[in-house]
Every structure is written in structure tokens, then in C-alpha cells.
Design a protein around this nucleic acid. Structure first.
Lengths: 343, 343
DNA sequence: ATGAAAGCGCTAACAG
DNA sequence: CTGTTAGCGCTTTCAT
């Protein structure tokens, strides 16, 4: 079973062509100082002899793995799919391999993955943190070794690690403003149990909008949850039991918003007339649920591309930090029926 | 920037302990013929000196990349997420790295990915084919070189390549049977434009159920689509224009079923009373749409685990083929309101 | 139970 | 422009 045709090496080509292996190597990698004719001969021979380069050997020699690690909370969204497509495009053009792991939004798993990637000698790292990650000590080993690390979406502010994200505060401000303009005065904010930078920024956007529109901030209207569909349903119960029932809800993700919306309707609440609802992310469910969920969309593809591009630049030492080491991408409010009141 | 502490090698440990590098190597990999005391010393030294093994070097020596390639149509589903978790569990225990690529259900991209993985010298391959892949010639190079390949979910029957899937025909039979028992007599079947093995099996299950229940098979009730949400909506239009309107729909995926369901309702069709609908996969949307979509669920985690396990066994040469080289996993019909008629 | 030595296939000084 | 040479860090005969 295990004797397929022998692998061809540069030595075989060298012998065949009566030149040195070094020249073959140079010819293959298109080194400038090789005669164009020799180059041609080498490349033709490689082709016809069925040569494929041995990355293991060249990587060992160059002390690089050519592998980029990607750590995300969860792969299960079209947003993340698009991010990966963007990343993949940039990295494959730059000849890197992508090793993907999902932390399942579990900080313990994230630590473990980081360690594994460190031992596997990835050349660089792209990370979107787990929901409940509050510090980034488990990534310090990379920073210390000078292995570049770029955060995206769920970032951790760090002097050495650029972050690509949207302006969460601004987007959240716009969502809240929209609800206010629809007439909402008591707006519940459903956020994460532990305030990541993303959650915090959105929280601040929410508060700022209230402030600007002279609506008092009411602490009792902020609900801290795990952000799953069921958590949304649970939040709905809490809301139903509130003495002074709110007239608007802004959840920081769609799953939670949808769970909440469905539960409220099940209990006879009219959406958006009694309570208007908005989410965040534009997951597939946002357009499927009835009524359609108002939400914030942002382009994963672009985010992946930008993050990967920065990483490649860091790997090539051509990266020049932007101010604050952050890149902000555009996002957009999508208004659907869950928040649109007929005047 | 790039002078972090020097990497420790087995030679450093050897020197430190006044033994040979060979012994260190053996000690580190727990070789039986090494004195237990020496082993301890080696492992302690490795620990305290901050050693991490260099996979690049050992891989070169062992002529293995330690990388498994995973090719899927699309990462965007909780089903696929679970598959990957299952795969990841088995492979990381077996000390393999996972490189993931998505073909975006595009056969051209799939061919390109296969070639890249071949050149990157993956040790093995796990593949779920793109929707429109009709042959597997682009994987023959792997077979020829004796690189093990295991298909899952969307498989291509091949003597050398085991496939892990569910009993699609049986599941489709059960869906159709359920619709028939709800009183449906004219059941539309929405399937893929190109009949993959998965689509074909489901198609056959559908036909068999009709046969068993003495319902004539009507070719005009079979709709060939691209299976997206919008394609479902388009299918709904086709159905609305049918002279003799059907009373049941069985789509082979949920996205398409949901698109169809929403469009029918928009046109005033009562679901399930006028038309009952069922899908396949239990995507998140199936439980969000109203009415809830009847569908087929199967455990991705298990499928990933089994496929990866088989691959590992093939890599260790301990795999013994099952009959027909196929493994069938369980699936289950989930009945929701989209097909449940009150009697 | 341990060591010496060779070599996996490639790249990068250095020399010419 | 090309060749020589020396490793990258590890594993593995073959000795001892």
C-alpha cells in the first residue's frame, strides 16, 4: 500500500539537468540572479518529473511554519463564514495555511487552543475572543516571542496587537436613537453577563443616545444574560414581570433578540407596537423571524480581509500602526418590522 | 523586535544533562528502552528550560506533515460547527492539526483547494463535497499516493474512501410518509439542480414512500433548484401557479423550505392546512420560522467524530472496512407545526 | 540503557 | 550567474 512513486527532490532535478541543487532551488523560487534559460529548464524539468516542493524541509530551514492560527468563538454564522472567506483569500495569496479552532465561547478552551497553537509554532494569530474572555494573558507568550497577533470583531485592546472592529458604540447609538425616534422611552438593554469590550462599547452607545435625547438612564432596564436564544426567552419573562413595562428592547445580538421576541409574542405582546425590538449582527434568523428583526449588519468579508492583511504586513515587517492601533469598519442599521411603527 | 529568548533544542537539554541528544529525544517521547530516572530528568529539564518540541524538524524527519485537511461546502451551520467540534476532538487527541477550507459549494474552488492541500502534503483528508460535485477525479492524486481520504455527509462512493453519512433514503421516506399520514396526496419534492448522491438518495426515499402508499409518482411535482432561501421563494411561485395545487412539500434542505414557506404565507396560503411543509437538517431557522418547520435532525458531532476516527485508523493502518465501505448514522424526524394538522 | 552518526530536503552564506 | 558547504532540529539505525 505505501509504495507510491518515489517523491522527486531538487537533487533529482539537479542530477537530471547536471547542475547544482542550489541552482534548482533558486530557479524554482524565481530568484533574480538565475539565468532565465536555466530557470526555464528547471521549471520544465520540475513539471515533467512531477516534482512538488517539500514545505516541511523548507519550513524547517526557514524556521517558519507557514501556518496562521485562527481562533474564533463559533463558526456557526454566515458572518463568520464570510470573515473566513476574506481571511482565506488574503492568506492563501500570501502562501499561508490556515488552522482554525473554535473556542465555543469558552475561555478555558480558548486558553487551551492558544497553548496548542503556540506549541505548533504558528507564524501568526488571528483572534476573535470568546464572549467571556476578560484578559489576554494566554496570548502573552506570542507577544513575547514576537509572533504577530491581530484581533478582529471581539478584540482586546493591546499596544502590540492591532484590532479590527466596527464602531460598536456608534452602531449601538444609532440603534437606540432609532428606537427613541419610534417613540420608545423605556428601552431595555440586553447585554452580556460579562462585559467584553464589544459589549461595553455597545452599552456606552446605548447610554449616550439616552443622554442625548434626555431620557434618564435606568439601571433596572439593563439585563445581563448569556445571549443565547433561551436566554432571550428568559429575558422576555423578566420584562413581562416588570412593574412599569418597557416599550423598547435593544439586545446586543440577534439570537437573544429573536428568543426574546418570540417569547413576548407567545405572551400576547404586540411587536413593535407595544414593544419595539432590535438586535445586532443580521444573522440569518433576523430575516426569518416574524416580524423581521431590526439589526445592525457589517461586512464580515471585509473584516477578515483587513485583519489578515494587517497580519501579513506584520509578518513582513511592513506594518505601520494606525492611531490607537485600531481599525474601524463601517456598519449599517437595517430597519425591519420589529421596530418600525406606523405613524 | 525579533530577538526573543533563543529557542531551546534537545541539544541544549543534552548538554545541560550531560547525555546525548538521542537519549533526550527518546526520553521526551517516552520511549520504552530509556531508564525511568533519565526520563524524569529529561522531562524536568525540558520543563524548566522552557523547551517546546520543533514539529517542523520532527515532521521532516518522519516525512509526515501532521496536518489533516478538511474540505466542506460551507461552514455556516450549527450542523457543520458540531461536525468540526467532533473532528477536532478526535484529531487533537491523535495529535493532528486541522486545516479547514470551504469550497462555498463551488466545484472549481473545490478542485483548487484539493490541489493546494495535495501540495501542502496533508497526511489525510476529510471531505464533504460541494453541492454540484459529480465526480471525484480531483481527489485521485491522494488515492494514488495512498493518502487516506474519508468522506462525510456529502459523499462520493469509492472503493478506497470510506463514507460516513445518514440513511438519506430512509429519512426522506419517513418525511414523506409523515406528510402522507397528515393527509397529503400531492407532494412536491424540491431537490437540487444537480443530483448529488445525497439528493438522489432522498429523492429515492420520497419515491419509495409514494409507491408504498399507492400514490402515483408525478414528475411535474419535482422541482430542481439551487436550494437557497430565494430559490425556495421562487419554487413557491411555481407552486402557486400550478393548475392542480399540491397539498404538501418536501424540500431537501431547510433554507429552501423556509424560503418557500414564507413566500406561500405571504400569498395567503395557510400552512399546514392547505399545504404542509417539511425540510431537512434542522437549521436554526427551522425553529424560528412560523410555523415551526418539520425537518430531519442528525448529530453532527457524532458524524465528525466517526469520520475522524476512521481517518485516524486508516493513518495507523488499523482500519478494517465495513461492508460497502459506508457508515450510516441515525437521524430523526422532528415534527413541528408546518406539517402537523389538527384532526 | 545509552551514544555516535547519518540524513530527512531545503536554503543561504560565501566563494568563485 | 552558479557551485560548495553547512546546517535547520529531530529521529533512527547501528553499535556498544
Amino acid at each position: 500500500m505505501s509504495n507510491p512513486e518515489k517523491e522527486i527532490t531538487i537533487y533529482d532535478i539537479a542530477r537530471h539537468l547536471n547542475i547544482s541543487a542550489a541552482t534548482v532551488s533558486r530557479g524554482l523560487m524565481d530568484h533574480p540572479s538565475v539565468n532565465i534559460l536555466t530557470k526555464q529548464k528547471v521549471q520544465e524539468a520540475a513539471q515533467s518529473m512531477g516534482y512538488r516542493s517539500n514545505h516541511l524541509a523548507s519550513n524547517l530551514r526557514k524556521k517558519r511554519s507557514n501556518i496562521i492560527g485562527l481562533i474564533v468563538g463559533n463558526l456557526d454564522s454566515s458572518f463568520m463564514t464570510n470573515i473566513i472567506v476574506g481571511i482565506d483569500k488574503v492568506l492563501s495569496e500570501a502562501n499561508y495555511n490556515l488552522v482554525i479552532s473554535q473556542s465555543l465561547d469558552n475561555i478555558g478552551k480558548e486558553v487551551q487552543i492558544a497553548k496548542a497553537m503556540y506549541n505548533n509554532r504558528v507564524d501568526g494569530l488571528l483572534v476573535s475572543l470568546a464572549y467571556d474572555t476578560e484578559n489576554a494573558e494566554h496570548f502573552e507568550s506570542f507577544v513575547k516571542r514576537g509572533i504577530p497577533l491581530v484581533y478582529f470583531d471581539r478584540i482586546f485592546p493591546h499596544e502590540k496587537c492591532p484590532g479590527v472592529e466596527i464602531d460598536n458604540a456608534k452602531a449601538a447609538y444609532e440603534v437606540t436613537e432609532h428606537l427613541i425616534r419610534q417613540g420608545c422611552r423605556r428601552i431595555v438593554h440586553i447585554t452580556a453577563y460579562r462585559l467584553s469590550s464589544v459589549a461595553l462599547d455597545r452599552f456606552n452607545g446605548y447610554k449616550q443616545a439616552l443622554l442625548d435625547y434626555n431620557i434618564p438612564y435606568d439601571e433596572s432596564l439593563v439585563l445581563y444574560t448569556e445571549l443565547g436564544i433561551e436566554d432571550g426567552a428568559r429575558a422576555a419573562q423578566t420584562i413581562l414581570n416588570m412593574p412599569n413595562r418597557p416599550d423598547g428592547i435593544f439586545a446586543i445580538n440577534d439570537a437573544c433578540a429573536v428568543g426574546c421576541l418570540k417569547e413576548l409574542r407567545k405572551n400576547g405582546v404586540s411587536i413593535p407596537d407595544e414593544i419595539a425590538i432590535a438586535g445586532f449582527n443580521d444573522d440569518a434568523v433576523a430575516d426569518i423571524v416574524e416580524p423581521g428583526l431590526t439589526t445592525v449588519i457589517y461586512k464580515g468579508y471585509e473584516m477578515g480581509e483587513v485583519a489578515a492583511q494587517i497580519l501579513v504586513e506584520k509578518l513582513n515587517n511592513t506594518y505601520t500602526a494606525t492611531s490607537g492601533n485600531k481599525v474601524l469598519l463601517k456598519s449599517e442599521l437595517i430597519i425591519r418590522e420589529s421596530s418600525l411603527r406606523r405613524k
